[in-house]
């Protein structure tokens, strides 16, 4: 058993990828998630070209129901809901990925340093991490955004600042696990620098759970962006789904469509990302692979 695990760990990357894909593809829920993901990516990239209505422009009668003038109706100002969803996808996806990237950068940096060096470095970094963990995430994000005035950059920054802690702990845990492994020892023996061991040897071997965490992180970031926009702290110059819900929430009794469709869009996006994340988790976990 121990030998098998080791075999998998040092398997050639291409074989590893194929195996993971095979595992992923055999999971129907994951495939559904991937399908939805591709659809959303399509809307994000090509949507505005196919449906070029400006989401800010008041194109129809206010509060016209779906199907009357426009496919998904208009909000209380007469703005096209469909255009909002198409353009909102860009903001949402951009924030989701950029914030996750930011989260990964901080989280991995801190996790790697803490896990690799141990001792007082670990102690210090983990106390800092715990400090951030005990702060209520949404409140801290709101304070940060309000402090630096809402824009896409501050939102990405705020989401990054409040959600890097799990990544840091996960990275550290993985590093602690593989720190004493033979292949790390071997690198040390041939005189590799700490730097190269950290980033070139250990990090790639700690990657699978991080990939899963990152994927799920995109979903969380999207929800954060929606929550901030709903509370009126979104970027006012970028149309987003959360903003649409927040702007129309006073009129929910008269225009259910203005809050329902953006809500569904968020739901579908986050669902797709969660399904992909779960699928990746199964596919990249070597223990599960062996069971099968």
């Amino acid at each position: 058993m121990a030998d098998d695990v080791k075999m998998n760990e040092i398997a050639a990357p291409s074989r590893r990828f194929l195996e993971a894909w095979y595992m992923f593809a055999s999971n129907k829920a994951a495939l559904l998630g991937l399908g939805l993901g591709i659809l959303i990516a399509g809307v994000t990239i090509f949507g505005p070209m196919i449906y070029p209505t400006d989401p800010f422009e008041m194109v129809g009668a206010p509060m016209s129901p779906p199907g009357e003038e426009l496919l998904l109706g208009t909000d209380f100002l007469g703005r096209d809901i469909l255009a909002g969803i198409v353009y909102g996808a860009r903001t949402t996806v951009l924030v989701g990925f950029a914030a996750t990237f930011f989260t990964l950068v901080i989280g991995i940096l801190i996790g790697v340093l803490a896990g690799f060096y141990g001792g007082w470095v670990e102690n210090l970094l983990m106390r800092v991490t715990e400090f951030f963990q005990v702060l209520p995430a949404l409140l801290l994000a709101m304070v940060l955004v309000a402090l630096f005035s809402p824009s896409l950059y501050t939102i990405i920054f705020a989401i990054g600042v409040v959600s890097w802690t799990p990544v840091a702990r996960l990275t550290r845990a993985e590093f602690l696990k593989i720190k004493e492994r033979e292949f790390v020892m071997a690198e040390r023996a041939i005189g590799a620098t700490n730097w190269s061991i950290m980033w070139k040897v250990m990090l790639p071997n700690a990657a699978p759970p991080l990939i899963v965490a990152a994927t799920l992180g995109v979903g969380v970031a999207i929800l954060f962006e929606a929550a901030l926009s709903f509370l009126g702290l979104g970027d006012p110059n970028a149309f987003s789904w959360g903003y649409m819900i927040g702007a129309s929430r006073d009129f929910i009794w008269d225009t259910w469509w203005a809050v329902t469709f953006p809500g569904l869009a968020i739901f579908v996006t986050v669902l797709s990302i969660s399904l992909i994340g779960d699928g990746l988790n199964d596919a990249l976990n070597p223990k599960l692979r062996l069971v099968k």
Binding site: D54, F56, E57, M58, L77, R79, P236, N237, A247
Partner: peptide, 8 residues
């Protein structure tokens, strides 16, 4: 609401 109108 007016701000939302002014922009476009």
């Amino acid at each position: 609401t007016l701000a939302a109108y002014m922009k476009p």
